[in-house]
Computed example of a mutant assay.
Amino acid sequence: MLHVVINAFLLALGLILPLGAQNVFVFNQGALQPRYVRALPITITASVCDTLLISLAVFGVSAIALGIAWIKISLISVGVLFLLYMGRVIWRSKPAAANGGQAEGLGARRQIALTASLSLLNPHAIMDAVGVIGTSALRYDGWDKLAFALTSIAVSWLWFHGLALAGRIAGKADPSGRFLVALNKSSALLMWGTAIYLALSLFE
């Protein structure tokens, strides 16, 4: 079973490491919140959403859904619209130092809603979960499959909580707020670029 755990750990880490809309949002809000505990609604929501996606991928339910063309097209279309909206939110958000000492971190309810939407309406996250984690899990049965799923889920939880903490540290180390302002602008451009890429994929 050890080789199953190692395989799941490396696979999940490889998928979650690249800079994407979900990671950017978690990091930014970790930096913008006045205290790390205020970012917990984001990290917990992102982790729970990933737990759901991984569970569905491992046990094959989402693979069936993505095999239906209109569901895939609808998912990508909604994802494009949401990424455009999230890009606007991130572009306009400001760190405390650039906003008269008042951080523009989101409230708990909005944190949860936006994080859940960004996680569950993210076509890349869903397709990675189904195409990579779900496919890799097909080689395992019984307890090995369960160990594979639990390891992948654990990586997700540790990653998001660590990412928000890294954002908080970066926020405290940047009293001028210039780095975070630049990061917000870059993050927004990344989200808009992803939205354009996904929109173009609909015409392939």
Rank of each mutant, 00 (worst) to 15 (best):
A63M: 11
F25M: 06
C49L: 07
A31G: 09
Q22L: 15
I16N: 10
V89H: 03
V26T: 10
V24K: 01
G20Y: 06
R92F: 06
N28C: 12
L66E: 05
A46I: 10
A46H: 01
L66H: 04
W70R: 07
G20R: 03
S77L: 09
A46K: 00
S55H: 09
F59V: 12
G20S: 14
R38D: 13
L52S: 06
L81C: 12
Q29A: 04
A46Y: 04
K94N: 03
L81R: 09
A39T: 04
L52M: 13
S62R: 07
V24M: 12
L19W: 13
G67L: 15
K72W: 09
G14N: 11
V61Y: 08
I73F: 13
V58Y: 02
F82L: 12
V78M: 09
V48I: 14
Q22F: 09
V37L: 12
I42Q: 04
L32T: 00
L15P: 15
T43N: 04
G87W: 03
T51L: 09
R88V: 02
L15S: 11
V37S: 09
S55N: 10
S93L: 08
A69N: 11
L15D: 06
G60R: 15
N23W: 09
I90Y: 02
T43G: 02
V48H: 01
L84W: 05
I73P: 11
S77A: 14
V24Q: 12
V26S: 02
